[in-house]
Amino acid sequence: MTGYHVPTRGILMSDDARDGADTGANVVVTGAAGFIGSHLVEALRRTGRNVVGIDRKAGWPEDEIPASDGVGYLRTIRGDLVSADLDACLKDTSAVFHLAALPGVRPSWTQFPEYLHCNVLATQRLLDACVRVGVSRVVVASSSSVYGGVADGAMSEDDIPHPLSPYGVTKLAAERLALAFAARLDATLSVSALRFFTVYGPGQRPDMFISRVVRATLSGEPIDIYGDGAQIRDFVHVSDVVRALLLAAKAPACGVLNIGTGRAVSVNEVLALTGELTGQVPEARYGPARLGDVRATTADVGRARLRLGFRARTELRAGLATQIEWTRRSLAGAPPRQAASSVGMAPTRRS
């Protein structure tokens, strides 16, 4: 349940994304007003899927948008998963994409009850309703934060999780809950949990690193860097994350999978690339690392490639350019265009 982002233009889907979106009847997206959720809702509708979007975000309107010209129906519901009438929301649903969560490492140290509410209790209640109603498939959005910082090299799904923040603890609890519900003998539920690495792109939350860098650079303002900038991250574009979600909904239940690029770059490299693409040099102010931040994250992507046929397509340069364009338009007061950010964008392929 992140910042409300409304797609303003349609997108074209690549063939494998269309195949991955073939989830049967209606689909439900929780956290539908958020960064990834809004992109996913748009992608599903463009494949003709009928979508029910649920979010507790203030300003998320309750509405019904009819299907037209091959674009699926959308019903939006504003509500908290802990208290909403989920049985009614899940009626005639074949698949659920569970993206709703309270994000952020640093606030989780001081707001842990709220993280438990949004990330654990909400997940438990949703899964319980899925079992009652007979939903056959749930795809859960997890996080690389469950690994912590102990991996030597790429982080594998076989590594023992060692989260270094309360946020990471709640994300691990959510994915384990989902797998436990799927193992119930009285459930028809199958589950895939996708551990997203650092997702970026148009509509990214304003508190995230790339969003802060791009906005500050374009505005000519300083940007605070937590640490020396040598820390590395596996930055994965939102278009690739949406494609992975669609593929996971169709593939046989595959447990836990990493979703990243398999490559990592440093914070300082992102700063340099932002300067190159904008023609403006970012003014970086370095300070202490934040509590709970890890030094390095890189995804071992072999299992996602094997079980989903997934490979990230968007190189950082191309992906960062889409976010810079989106931010320019936002700062200028123009309607941000989502088209270049979505699954149908011209990809930069890696060999």
Rank of each mutant, 00 (worst) to 15 (best):
S330M: 12
V265H: 08
A43Y: 02
G262M: 11
D15L: 12
G229R: 01
S68K: 07
L291P: 11
T322W: 01
A95V: 13
A296I: 00
Q323N: 06
F209W: 12
R46C: 14
G279K: 04
V140I: 15
I54E: 02
A151C: 15
A32C: 09
A174P: 09
Y167E: 01
P7N: 05
I259T: 12
L102G: 02
E157Y: 01
W109E: 02
N268E: 12
S211Y: 00
D15F: 06
T274E: 00
G344S: 06
L116C: 12
G201N: 02
P335M: 08
L185T: 09
Y286N: 05
V267N: 05
D158N: 14
S94K: 03
G302A: 13
D159M: 11
V146P: 12
D85A: 11
R215S: 14
R233Q: 12
A122H: 06
R125H: 12
V214C: 08
A339G: 11
T298L: 13
I36L: 15
V82P: 01
P166T: 08
M1F: 11
L271N: 00
R243C: 06
P7Q: 09
A21Y: 05
T110H: 12
R233P: 06
P336V: 11
S330Y: 07
G31A: 05
A312M: 10
L81K: 02
S143C: 03
W60H: 09
V52E: 01
V138P: 10
D15V: 08
S145A: 15
A216N: 03
P163K: 01
S83P: 00
V150E: 10
A346K: 15
F197L: 12
L189S: 07
S342E: 09
G220F: 10
P103D: 00
L177P: 10
R9G: 13
L331M: 08
L316P: 11
H162D: 07
T8S: 13
Q323Y: 06
K250P: 04
T123S: 11
G134C: 10
G153S: 06
V213W: 00
A43N: 06
G104Y: 00
D293K: 03
G227R: 08
I324Q: 04
E269D: 13
H39Y: 07
M208I: 09
Q204H: 11
P206T: 08
D207H: 14
A178K: 04
L172M: 05
